[in-house]
Measured scan of single mutants.
Amino acid sequence: MTYKLILNGKTLKGETTTEAVDAATAEKVFKQYANDNGSDGEWTYDDATKTFTVTE
Rank of each mutant, 00 (worst) to 15 (best):
M1L: 12
M1W: 13
M1G: 11
T2F: 08
T2V: 13
T2A: 05
Y3H: 03
Y3A: 01
Y3R: 00
Y3N: 03
Y3P: 02
K4Q: 05
K4C: 07
K4D: 03
K4A: 04
K4I: 12
L5Y: 02
L5E: 03
L5M: 04
I6R: 05
I6P: 01
L7T: 05
L7Y: 10
L7V: 07
L7M: 12
L7F: 12
N8L: 13
N8A: 09
N8C: 14
N8R: 11
N8G: 05
N8T: 10
N8Q: 10
N8M: 14
G9Y: 10
G9R: 05
G9M: 14
G9F: 15
G9A: 05
G9V: 10
G9W: 06
G9C: 13
K10L: 14
K10C: 13
T11E: 10
T11D: 10
T11L: 12
T11M: 09
T11Y: 14
T11R: 07
L12T: 11
L12I: 14
L12S: 13
L12N: 11
K13M: 09
K13G: 07
K13H: 10
K13R: 11
K13D: 05
K13N: 09
K13P: 05
G14P: 05
G14W: 15
G14E: 11
G14H: 14
G14M: 14
G14I: 15
G14Y: 15
E15L: 06
E15H: 09
E15N: 06
E15A: 07
E15Q: 10
T16L: 15
T16H: 14
T16C: 14
T16M: 15
T16S: 06
T16K: 09
T17P: 01
T17G: 03
T17N: 05
T17R: 07
T18Y: 10
T18I: 15
T18V: 14
T18D: 02
E19W: 15
E19Q: 13
E19S: 10
A20F: 03
A20N: 02
A20K: 02
A20V: 03
A20M: 02
A20E: 03
A20S: 06
V21W: 11
V21D: 09
V21L: 12
V21P: 14
V21E: 11
V21N: 10
V21A: 13
D22W: 01
D22T: 04
D22I: 01
D22Y: 02
A23Y: 13
A23D: 04
A24Y: 09
A24G: 07
A24C: 11
A24E: 12
A24D: 09
A24Q: 11
A24H: 09
T25M: 10
T25R: 06
T25L: 05
A26S: 01
A26Y: 00
E27Y: 15
E27H: 10
E27N: 04
K28L: 12
K28T: 08
K28E: 08
V29P: 01
V29A: 08
V29H: 11
F30T: 01
F30E: 01
F30N: 00
F30Y: 00
F30P: 00
F30H: 01
F30L: 04
K31T: 04
K31P: 00
K31M: 08
K31V: 06
K31F: 05
K31G: 02
Q32H: 06
Q32Y: 04
Q32R: 08
Q32P: 01
Q32K: 13
Q32C: 06
Y33P: 00
Y33T: 03
Y33Q: 03
Y33W: 13
Y33L: 06
Y33D: 01
Y33I: 07
Y33K: 03
Y33E: 02
A34F: 08
A34T: 08
A34V: 15
A34W: 12
A34H: 03
N35A: 15
N35P: 03
N35G: 09
N35D: 11
N35E: 14
N35K: 15
N35I: 15
N35L: 15
N35W: 14
D36Q: 11
D36Y: 09
D36H: 07
D36R: 08
N37L: 15
N37V: 15
N37E: 07
N37M: 15
N37K: 12
G38S: 06
G38K: 07
G38P: 03
G38H: 08
G38Y: 09
G38L: 13
S39E: 11
S39Q: 14
D40A: 12
D40M: 12
D40Q: 13
D40H: 14
D40T: 14
G41Y: 12
G41I: 05
G41A: 04
E42C: 12
E42I: 14
W43A: 01
W43K: 00
W43N: 01
T44N: 08
T44H: 12
T44L: 07
T44Y: 10
T44F: 10
T44P: 00
Y45G: 00
Y45K: 00
Y45H: 01
Y45I: 01
D46P: 00
D46E: 06
D47Y: 07
D47I: 07
D47S: 11
D47R: 06
D47H: 11
D47V: 08
D47N: 07
D47G: 07
A48G: 07
A48S: 11
A48K: 11
T49K: 06
T49M: 05
T49W: 03
T49P: 00
K50Y: 08
K50M: 08
K50Q: 08
K50D: 02
K50H: 11
K50S: 04
K50T: 03
K50I: 02
K50P: 00
T51N: 01
T51D: 00
T51C: 04
F52G: 00
F52N: 00
F52Y: 05
F52H: 00
T53R: 05
T53Q: 06
T53G: 01
T53H: 06
T53P: 00
T53D: 01
T53I: 07
V54L: 13
V54I: 11
V54P: 01
V54D: 01
V54N: 01
T55H: 09
T55M: 07
T55A: 06
T55D: 06
E56R: 04
E56Q: 12
E56K: 05
E56N: 08
